[in-house]
């Protein structure tokens, strides 16, 4: 048997209890089977409310499934404690959200250093150098000492990407990373993702509305009503009335 896949979802279902008395429970995603190997660039698409983001949070170990399992390197993460999950996220996963979520009190450089300092794998000087290198690779060398509020929206999102890459994660998970960006900046962010996959052999999973950008991913998983309806490099996507 070959090595287990990097990330695997087996029959993953997530049900939220209904809000309010007697309200029916909400099924976010249902019976998802998905494997993501190293070096894959996966786009998750689907209409609003189809459970794309929910699936991403489950794959990123931010949320636990109601049924089924998420496995990393073939190991079931359901059995892990919250601190152990946090450690896994810190060391092996990187997140980018629609909103940049940079800490407003800290400079660009410090924001990128935070995950490295938390992991504590390298000494302080090396952390600083690595953070500088990552920022430079994203064309942000001049923004090092600036606070997030002094940057443009596109730059902030690139800093957020830089922070996601800080600990050299094996999988980068992005939730509508270009949702607040114009076309040019959105393209830049996707260029970065393509480079992570192409040059470093890392995996990227992106949730997006934007079908043009999704087309740049090697593989597209399409969700409707919490279920995967198509999965493949040329999955025939029925054009949706996307807002």
């Amino acid at each position: 048997m070959s090595a287990p896949p990097l990330l695997e979802a087996r029959g993953v279902t997530r049900i939220l209890p209904g809000e309010g008395f007697g309200a029916p429970p909400v099924r976010l995603v249902e019976d998802i089977d998905l494997t993501v190997g190293a070096g894959e660039f996966v786009a998750i698409t689907g209409p609003s409310g189809s459970g794309k983001s929910s699936l991403l949070y489950l794959l990123g170990l931010l949320d636990r499934p109601s049924a089924g399992a998420v496995l990393i390197d073939g190991e079931d993460t359901g059995a892990l404690s919250a601190p152990a999950l946090a450690r896994l996220r810190l060391a092996r996963l990187g997140f980018v959200f629609q909103f940049h979520f940079l800490l407003p009190e800290f400079t660009t450089l410090e924001n990128v250093m935070i995950p490295m300092r938390r992991l504590g794998r390298h000494p302080q000087d090396e952390i600083r150098e690595r953070a500088r290198a990552i920022l430079a690779s994203l064309g942000l060398q001049d923004a090092e000492r600036k606070l997030p509020e002094q940057l443009s929206g596109g730059m902030r999102q690139r800093v957020a990407v830089a922070r996601a890459l800080a600990n050299d994660p094996e999988i980068v998970l992005a939730d509508e990373p270009t949702g607040n960006l114009d076309t040019r900046n959105a393209a830049t962010v996707f260029d970065v993702f393509a480079r992570i996959v192409g040059e470093h052999g890392r995996s990227v999973i992106v949730v997006t509305h934007d079908l043009d950008l999704a087309a740049r991913a090697g593989r597209r998983v399409h969700l409707v009503d919490g279920r995967i309806v198509s999965d493949g490099p040329h999955s025939p996507v029925v054009p949706q009335a996307v807002a």
Partner: peptide, 16 residues
């Protein structure tokens, strides 16, 4: 709350 969310998603524990 947003900063807390991002720190947790980055891998900060509840204790942190």
């Amino acid at each position: 709350t947003r900063d807390i969310a991002i720190l947790k998603s980055l891998g900060f524990t509840e204790g942190d």
